[in-house]
Design a binder for these strands. Structure first.
Lengths: 202, 202, 202, 202
DNA sequence: ACAATCGGGACCCCCCGTTATT
DNA sequence: AATAACGGGGGGTCCCGATTGT
């Protein structure tokens, strides 16, 4: 008749989503060491449900990581193509830099968490490494593609090695943004200086 | 009296050193979550000694962090002034990049640990933050100084903003080297490309 | 209507049988602490079905115990009357000893499980006790009957107390066969020695 | 000066002993599934101390098993040599049978526990197997020795195979006494009948 | 200075049972 | 009849720190 009444599978999916959301918030505030059932309690269910959906705490962390990555990617890609006027490779590259800086320095719990997850993947949680590798590779390739596009449309100097430029921009951006201990204003100032240098170099 | 026989204080210092060394090795292998008495056992003493010297586990971690930073700084500064010929700012900057890359991609437990400590300082262990801030600040300033020196001796283009260049090099280096999941060869290749780009830009 | 098409009830019975079979295998391998849904998964259904058929885990264990006892009894009684020639009480008694030894030392999961269930009935699972008592009583009586039959047909010395002999044979057999930790060959050697002694004593 | 003040090591040993005693009582009443800290609480300490002394619950169970075996062995060996008059092999063998029956049918928690531990060693707790094997082997050998001694001193018929007799007595005894579900009076009656048969056969 | 022992809390895992659903 | 989601409690492990002794 109608799907006004949530079907079984839909309700389960909703629960799962609530759990991921709750985990993002809780992990962002308390770190990845946050208690297992605190997350469940935040989502209004019990540990049993959490265990049912994710199998273990590691499973939950992995799910959160994937979800966080996807949400960030969506935002950044949206920004890249936003705005009026022409979209040269150079413009898109700079917009990506700006938007990444804006988001990561926003100080929102979400980006604190995302940074934490990236770190954990490299150090304390090797099981997240494959996920991290994939997202890093995708990001690097995307950067290099933007440089190549810029060279094709004439907005970026053709005598630069596109791979060198793309990788460097990516690395510098990461380097700047991972200095979480510095105040956001400071980091933004650095990125601006970096951006100006970039304008000269491209 | 005489210090031919090792004084009580000297013996204590020796124990303390052994503990720090053991902690570096153990943390490098098992991560910072390694057990408190595993470290002590490695050093041939018991937990009591550790507690006596460092007060708490956090105290030990902090001591290890400081020690690791000092050891790294020593090595890198040595390399910067090594070699024959003139030591222009440009040369010293490039040597610093090379040597940092060499060390961090060496895969030795020591550098795995150092990276882990940097990460922990910004995410899971806020008490390490002050230490991290100081070392980062020193590193950034040192980079900028090298660029300025290069501009004074004519080895680096004078129309670049020295702060922008120094900070960017520092950030990019960190970005490249923190990708621990990538094979060392890969990371070294990236740094080489970065170095070539740098030669053009400076 | 017709029962050409398997009726609902028949399908249910088939599921029940599959569950018992799966439980025998799983319990034999992992012990009675095996997980509830592991059994169900082995049978290709979920926990719910198990709960539906047996009410609880204890219910399943009890059902398995009864089933295992029946299967064993069938085999042993078959063997007792097998073979050509006369079937004196003595012969039947010795055949029962031989066959029991053969089966329990076979090392098949089934007999490992049967032994486990006997043990559990007397220690950790008092609810199985009534079942165990019945089967033990039946076994003892059967032994004594065989001795009495042997005395009637002249194959066993008449001056022995039939109850003493029957109970002792039963007990000794249990004692020998419950030494699961010893290699089967060892246990079989013991039973052979016991059999030889028995030939002299009967 | 004096050891009135309990030295450190002695106090620790006392704690350890209290823990073993508490575990014996608790396990005897509630089975081996008894809670870890219930034992500790009974002994007046906390889980931490228990963990310190035995490493794990399995470690505690193993320690309890060993201790229980030793206590039983002491009692039974004492009884074997007790009483006035000559100590022929035959007498000692029969006394051992009597005393074992008396103890195991005493219904004391201690012997319920001992039986439980024997069972667990063969089924649910393979890590106890080595301990069980050793004690069983010792018991078997002891039985056979008694028969041999009896044959040497003329109290037991020389034409019996001593190994067959010893092993059979041992096995039958185990078989009788492991029928925990039967009332003690019943089991004692059986053992008496067995004893009478034995008198005829030896 | 260092050792040995003990206190104690927190947390994840585990798994059984039940309910709503088809 | 059978499923899948969910509730919910309990236990062992772990490990830091404190105390007491030497």
């Amino acid at each position: 008749v109608s799907d006004l009444a949530p079907t079984r599978a839909a309700a389960a999916q909703a629960t799962r989503d609530r759990l991921v959301d709750a985990a993002i918030e809780r992990f962002a505030r308390d770190g990845l060491l946050a208690r297992f059932d605190a997350v469940a309690a935040d989502a209004g269910v019990t540990k049993g449900a959490l265990y049912h959906h994710f199998g273990s705490k590691d499973g939950l962390v992995a799910a959160v990581y994937k979800e966080a990555i996807n949400r960030h990617a969506e935002r950044v890609l949206d920004a890249e193509d936003a705005g009026a006027g022409r979209h040269t490779g150079r413009q898109r590259l700079l917009r990506l830099v700006d938007e990444s800086a804006r988001l990561y320095t926003s100080g929102t719990p979400f980006y604190v968490l995302l940074q934490t997850l990236h770190d954990a993947a490299r150090t304390s949680r090797p099981e997240l490494e494959p996920i991290a590798r994939r997202v890093q590779a995708r990001q690097r390739e995307h950067m290099v593609q933007l440089v190549r596009a810029g060279q094709r449309d004439g907005s970026i100097r053709a005598d630069r090695d596109p791979e060198a430029v793309g990788l460097t921009v990516n690395a510098a951006l990461q380097g700047f943004l991972s200095q979480l201990s510095e105040p956001a204003a400071q980091r933004r100032r650095w990125v601006r200086k970096f951006r100006d240098l970039l304008e000269d170099v491209l």
